[in-house]
């Protein structure tokens, strides 16, 4: 038995050296790129980046590995992305929560820790009511809210987009709502179907339940009515000046080489232009929305200020 020992050690060493040699330096991208999605597989964000991954892979010419780095309202993933080496092999899939969680003190990661690459999609928010409420329209809801200030319950992830959207409506319509913490769309749907909360923020993916009479769409936060849901009025036409969508995009850690960012941006532009991707997004109640890195940078800056003001108005501002 003993005489087999040495050859095996030698064999192991050879394998080790060979694999090490193959991992040498070459032009970007020469190894798999990790796409950090800070929420669980199957969530809204994951549902958008899963079909996006293969498209990006096709145009970037490198394997895209989606890593769901979950926990603490998406801040674990944000932190992991921030601390990753800025070499272009770690890309972070983010949305507007990056501003709101920063200002409400949930997270210590700011959009300034990253270089923008591109935006991918925009999902308009829909104000949704429980089937157990008696309202059939915004006017009835408004009347009831004025009659019972602070009594109507809204399920929301506190300090995140699902909280800020109803808060904008609250401010614009001059009403007062009561927030109850329900993190994630699935628990909110459980609660609203059981009538344990009255209102929540959702999106067009829930249209099936509305058609089945299990939910009521009150209004959508777009500029114009959408062809997928022509009967849902916009908040604007109801006299509430709120347009709100969750914009998802790609960023990389600050200090990533410019040529890597440029390659990612080009690949992203081509990937978002794929008709297959648009088709997948339509199923998610989402519009494809591409902005290049310059436009995304401006968007982030504007959005950041907006979120800062909102957090201040809500009394949630921590920095």
């Amino acid at each position: 038995m003993r005489r087999f020992g040495l050859p095996l050690v030698a064999l192991a060493l050879v394998v080790v050296v060979l694999v090490a040699a193959s991992a040498g330096l070459a032009a970007y991208p020469d190894r798999p790129v990790k796409l950090i999605v800070p929420w669980a597989a199957g969530g809204d964000t994951d549902a958008i980046f899963r079909p996006f991954g293969p498209q990006l892979q096709k145009h970037l010419g490198a394997t895209i590995v989606i890593a769901n780095v979950t926990g603490a309202s998406g801040t674990v993933g944000a932190r992991e992305a921030k601390n990753s080496p800025p070499d272009g092999y770690t890309v972070y899939a983010t949305h507007d929560y990056i501003h709101s969680t920063y200002y409400t003190g949930v997270s210590d990661v700011s959009y300034k820790d990253f270089e923008p690459v591109c935006t991918v999609s925009a999902t308009p928010s829909v104000l949704t009511a429980s089937p157990k409420t008696k309202w059939t329209s915004w006017q009835e809801l408004l009347g009831d809210a004025k009659a019972r200030p602070g009594q109507i319950t809204v399920g929301a992830t506190l300090g995140s987009t699902s909280h800020f959207f109803p808060a904008l409506i609250e401010k614009s319509a001059g009403i007062k709502l009561k927030y109850v913490s329900y993190e994630g769309l699935a628990p909110r749907m459980n609660a609203i179907l059981g009538g344990h909360i009255d209102l929540t923020d959702s999106n067009l993916t829930q249209k099936g339940k509305v058609d089945a009479g299990q939910l009521k769409f009150i209004a959508i936060a777009t500029e114009k009515r959408l062809p997928q849901a022509p009967s849902v009025p916009t908040l604007k036409e109801l006299g509430v000046d709120v347009v709100y969508a969750v914009t998802r995009g790609l960023v990389v850690p600050k200090g990533t080489p410019a040529d890597a960012v440029a390659k990612l941006e080009t690949a992203c532009a081509k990937a978002t232009a794929e008709p297959k991707f648009a088709e997948d997004m339509a199923k998610q109640g989402t519009a494809v929305r591409f902005l290049d890195r310059k436009a995304y940078a401006e968007f982030l800056k504007r959005n950041d200020q907006l979120n800062h003001d909102l957090a201040r108005d809500l009394g949630l501002l921590k920095r």
Partner: peptide, 25 residues
């Protein structure tokens, strides 16, 4: 038992590595 020990170590490493990294990404 050197031979068995080293071959188990090598096999475990390579099999898990390839299954996870290549096949399961």
């Amino acid at each position: 038992r050197w031979a068995r020990g080293l071959s188990v170590a090598l096999a475990t490493t390579l099999v898990t590595y390839y299954v996870f990294e290549v096949y399961l990404s």
